[in-house]
Structure formats: structure tokens, C-alpha cells
Design a protein around this nucleic acid. Structure first.
Length: 526
DNA sequence: ATACATACC
DNA sequence: TACTGGTATGTAT
């Protein structure tokens, strides 16, 4: 397979300075404190638990896991495909020189993505740009260009839908496929006509090195790269891939690289949930297969750190770590007390992780939140924004009214015609977040801008009156219980191919997409 | 019904 | 100087 060009060698970063005192750090410290105190409370509860209770807990755990394990479907080939450092890679199509230089996409206050050269310095997505610059002074930060990312995502989706017409996009850069039926079809493996490149051009394309002796070169020549303008040798060839899922996914990733000039990684497992975990293992530009075999599954799951599983975020992970639980194996050693440590839904998530299955029983039905009167009670639309903290009420009122208006525009763009509930979000200078909401007696049409602005303002001023005069650093307005226009009118925009997001791939429900007959096109950079 | 917390990209 | 924005979902009261 093709590999990204080697990164420029750079000296390692100096160690991070200890976190100074700031409102942000104070807030983070408070949060850690609360977590510890919570854990302390639970520990004291555990110390008072009776052996009978614990035995009951242990039995429950074993029973639930055993129950879930019967849902394992070892013959399935679930695939999760994930574009590597997506925004950064797309920016490299426009400016190929960044392929080997540390670069990130985002702004001074937050980075969305960092490319791999930047990651060598410890720069990560989700890090504020100004901190990243301390780790890597030569870091180039490019602004987000969502229009372009949507185009790239569309091309990606087009390629994948040829492998599975029911492919399910989960965000712009990720997708789930089911190739269970596909794989058995080709006992002799797969072959594909491709072009591999060599020469000065370093763009993220299939490379000459990817051609093996099993492949056949049909013709070759000397041209100029259309992306970076550098000299380029090309080799038209037929590439061959081994039979089975490994070859098929190598071919799939080669096809993605050909059609989008983007590299991706893939995970293959007997459940979507595990496939997602697997796609991170050999990233970037790699793939990992978890064999559909009970012992292999158990070994893999038990040895994995819990925080790698979708749904186990920093808070749960840190909390469990306080109890000495870091891996799934650790979890099994605390069966007796798990019930005390986590919420009910977390408990079932954890048992599902242990069992290695996607969904709890009785929840496999395709579900919609849309009710008969066209109200989608699950969906919300909103706008929020951070600004220099201020306690000036006139300014804040003006801001919330403008956000109420932009949230209306955003909702209209999604085909919303009326709303049943309005949420206001306030983040104080201390980073404490508050929300207030008001449910309406009847649906408010989006044409009633004044009313929605007035209610937003009232919720805000009431909040300020209650809290006293404090600095505010973020305001947001969000609408819920959305009345939707007839679907035929709205599904036309660039993002229409995106499915409704599903949190963490925890419960991936597959959804039929429109048949796609358009030819795959290379991303248009303008 | 409302507020808050957690998660994901 | 400076720590996002949009959406979903679960828990507590």
C-alpha cells in the first residue's frame, strides 16, 4: 500500500510547563476535585456493601454479559473506515508543501486537526492553537474550510457506496460498511486498475512502491502533478489483492486514495462497535482485522484500555481509573462493585463492551423520533459563540438576540418551520455552564423572529438577575421539538448525504441511502 | 418540565 | 491575549 511521504525530521519538543493559574485551569481543577470527592463517596459505600449484595451484583454482571454474548455474530464483516487527520489532509491537496511540515487546522483558540508531522511535537486536535505553538513554534495553522471538507467527504462517500450501497456516514470523515456478503464472492481475490506515481511529486497518492511483482504495469510516462505542479512519473497498472476481507479492504483504501487523494484507515470486526476501535490501531493509512473468533475477541477486548471504547470519555475513564480500572480485564475484577461506580446506562455500555456486541437486545428496531404531526422531538438546532468575557448587559442582550436570529436561519436551512422549545446556554468567565429553557404551549413558527428573540432575552436577563453581575464568555440559543417541512422539499444541500449522527457508534443502525449513480469525481479545489 | 453532565467529531 | 461549535443522550430533581 502507499504510504505518506516521510515527515521532516525535527528536534523533539521541550516538556510541557506545569499548568499555571488561569480561570480555565482552576475550572479543570475544580472538576477533578468533584470527581475525586464523588469517587470517595462511592468507595465508602462499597466498604459498607454486604457480601450478599456483592454476590448478587457479580451474578447480575455475569448473566448480562452471557446474555449479550449470545448476540455475537462472528460471521459478520463490519468495517469502519476513517480518513486520516481529515481536515489537514484535505488542506494538503491545496497546499502540498504542508504534507511534510507541521500544520494544523483551526485557530489560536482551538485546533480541529493536526497533521502527523505536527503530532510528533505533541500537537493534538482539541488543543488550543496558542499552546500548540508553544510546543511547535513553526506550526502553521490554517483556518477551517468546511465547504471543501464537505466536497472531499462526498467523494469519499461515493467510493464507499460502491462497496456497500448501504454505507452509513458518521460525520464527514468516517463511515460504517457491512461487507459480510461481499467478501465470500471472490475466491481468487480482487484486481483493480490503478495509477501509481513516483518522482518529485510527494502528494498523498498511490506510490510506485505500492506496486508489487504480482501487479502488472500496463504503461508508464512522465507528467506534471496536477496538485503540486511537480514532476511526476506515472504507472498505469493492474493491482492484485488477496482474496478475503484483508485484500478487499486494501483495495477499498486504494480506491479511496485514487479517487480522493486521501489516505484512510480501516477496522474490520464482527461488530460495528469493535470495528471502530480497530480502525484506530494502525492509523494512519493502515488497517486492522479482529478475527471473528470467540477467543480472539475475548483476548482483544480484555487487554484493551477502556478509554479506547466509544462512549468512555475522559470523565468516565478518569473516574474508573480512580477505582483502579484501566482495562476491560480490570473491569472484570470489579464486577461485584461496578453497580456502585457507574450509572445504569454506563453499566450496560460496559457490559456490552465486555461481551463485544453492538446493541442491547430489543433495541435493534429502526427508530425515528418523528411523531405523526411532523414534530421531531429528538432533534435540536442552535448557534453558540464564545467572545471576550463581559458582564455588560446591553451587549449580552444584543448578542443573544443575534444568536436567536442565526439559530433561526440555521434551522430554516434544515427544513424546520416551527419550534416547541427554546434553550439558552450561558458559559461564565469561570467556565461554568448553565442552561435555561422554555417550552411553548404551542409550536412557534420560525417567522415569529421577535418572539423567539424576546424569549431568549428574557431567559438571559432572568438568569443574570439570579446570578448577579458576572462575566460571561459564551452565549447560545438552541431550538427543539422541531416542526419539519415535508422531507421532499429539504434534502438537497451538500450535507444531505450525511445521516443523523449516532453517538460514538455505540448503537449503529443502518439506514438506506439514495442510490448513487453519479461518477466519482476528484475533489474540486475551487 | 427544567437543569446539568457527558460524549463525539 | 488566547481553551470551539453543533448535536445527542442520560441523570437528577
Amino acid at each position: 500500500m502507499f504510504k505518506p511521504p516521510p515527515a521532516v525530521k525535527v528536534s523533539p519538543s521541550r516538556p510541557m510547563e506545569p499548568p499555571g493559574s488561569s480561570l480555565f485551569n482552576d475550572h479543570a481543577a475544580d472538576k477533578r476535585e468533584r470527581l475525586k470527592s464523588n469517587v470517595g463517596y462511592v468507595k465508602s459505600m462499597i466498604s459498607r456493601a454486604t457480601p450478599a449484595q456483592q454476590a448478587k451484583n457479580e451474578k447480575e454482571f455475569n448473566d448480562v454479559v452471557a446474555d449479550y454474548k449470545t448476540l455475537r455474530n462472528l460471521k459478520d464483516y463490519c468495517v469502519h473506515v476513517d480518513l486520516d487527520a481529515f481536515y489537514a489532509q484535505v488542506e494538503c491537496l491545496r497546499e502540498p508543501k504542508y504534507t511534510r511540515l507541521p500544520m494544523a487546522v483551526g485557530g489560536d483558540s482551538m485546533l480541529s486537526t493536526a497533521n502527523y508531522p505536527a503530532r510528533k511535537f505533541g500537537v493534538k486536535s482539541g488543543m488550543p492553537g496558542f499552546q500548540a505553538k508553544k510546543l511547535c513554534p513553526q506550526l502553521v495553522i490554517l483556518p477551517c474550510d468546511f465547504k471543501l471538507y464537505h466536497k472531499a467527504s462526498w467523494s469519499f462517500h461515493q467510493v464507499l457506496s460502491k462497496f456497500d450501497p448501504d454505507v452509513r456516514m458518521a460525520g464527514l470523515d468516517e463511515a460504517y460498511l457491512n461487507l459480510s456478503n461481499f467478501v465470500a464472492d471472490a475466491p481468487d481475490g480482487y484486481s483493480m486498475n490503478t495509477v501509481a506515481y513516483d518522482g518529485e511529486c510527494q502528494c498523498n497518492r498511490p506510490r510506485k512502491d505500492d506496486i508489487t511483482e504480482d501487479d502488472e504495469v500496463i504503461s508508464s510516462g512522465d507528467i506534471t502533478c496536477t496538485i503540486c505542479g511537480m514532476a511526476q512519473l506515472y504507472f498505469n497498472c493492474t493491482m492484485n489483492f488477496s482474496p478475503g476481507i484483508d485484500g478487499m479492504i486494501r483495495m477499498l483504501r486504494m480506491e479511496v486514495a485514487m479517487r480522493t487523494n486521501l489516505s484512510c484507515s480501516a477496522g474490520i470486526a464482527s461488530s460495528y462497535y469493535l470495528a471502530k476501535v480497530c480502525s484506530d490501531i494502525n492509523k494512519p493509512n493502515g488497517q486492522f482485522i479482529l478475527p471473528g473468533d470467540n477467543d480472539a475477541l475475548d483476548t482483544f477486548i480484555l487487554s484493551s484500555p477502556l478509554k479506547l471504547f466509544p462512549g468512555i470519555g475522559p470523565t468516565s475513564s478518569n473516574s474508573l481509573a480512580e477505582f483502579g480500572i484501566k482495562t476491560v480485564a480490570d473491569l472484570l475484577n470489579h464486577k461485584k462493585n461496578l453497580r456502585f461506580m457507574v450509572s445504569n446506562s454506563q453499566y450496560y455500555l460496559l457490559t456490552r463492551i465486555v461481551a463485544g456486541v453492538d446493541c442491547p437486545p430489543d433495541e435493534t428496531e429502526e427508530s425515528t423520533n418523528e411523531t405523526d404531526n411532523g414534530i421531531d422531538s429528538g432533534k435540536t438546532v442552535g448557534t453558540e459563540s464564545t467572545f471576550t468575557p463581559t458582564s455588560n448587559q446591553a451587549e449580552l442582550v444584543s448578542l443573544i438576540r443575534s444568536f436567536a436570529k442565526s439559530a433561526i436561519e440555521s434551522a430554516k436551512g434544515d427544513g424546520v418551520t416551527s419550534v416547541g422549545i427554546l434553550f439558552v446556554k450561558v458559559k461564565l468567565g469561570s467556565y461554568d455552564v448553565h442552561t435555561c429553557s422554555q417550552k411553548f404551549n404551542e409550536q412557534v413558527p420560525l417567522t415569529n423572529v421577535e418572539l423567539l428573540q424576546n424569549v431568549s432575552e428574557t431567559l438571559l436577563t432572568k438568569f443574570i438577575a439570579k446570578q448577579g453581575k458576572k462575566d460571561i464568555r459564551l452565549l447560545g440559543v438552541r431550538y427543539g421539538e422541531l416542526g419539519m417541512a415535508p422531507l421532499s422539499k429539504v434534502q438537497t444541500g451538500l450535507k444531505s448525504f450525511l445521516n443523523k449522527p449516532t453517538v460514538g457508534g455505540r448503537c449503529v443502525k443502518r439506514r438506506k441511502l439514495e442510490e448513487n449513480t453519479d461518477p466519482v469525481t476528484v475533489i474540486d479545489l475551487e
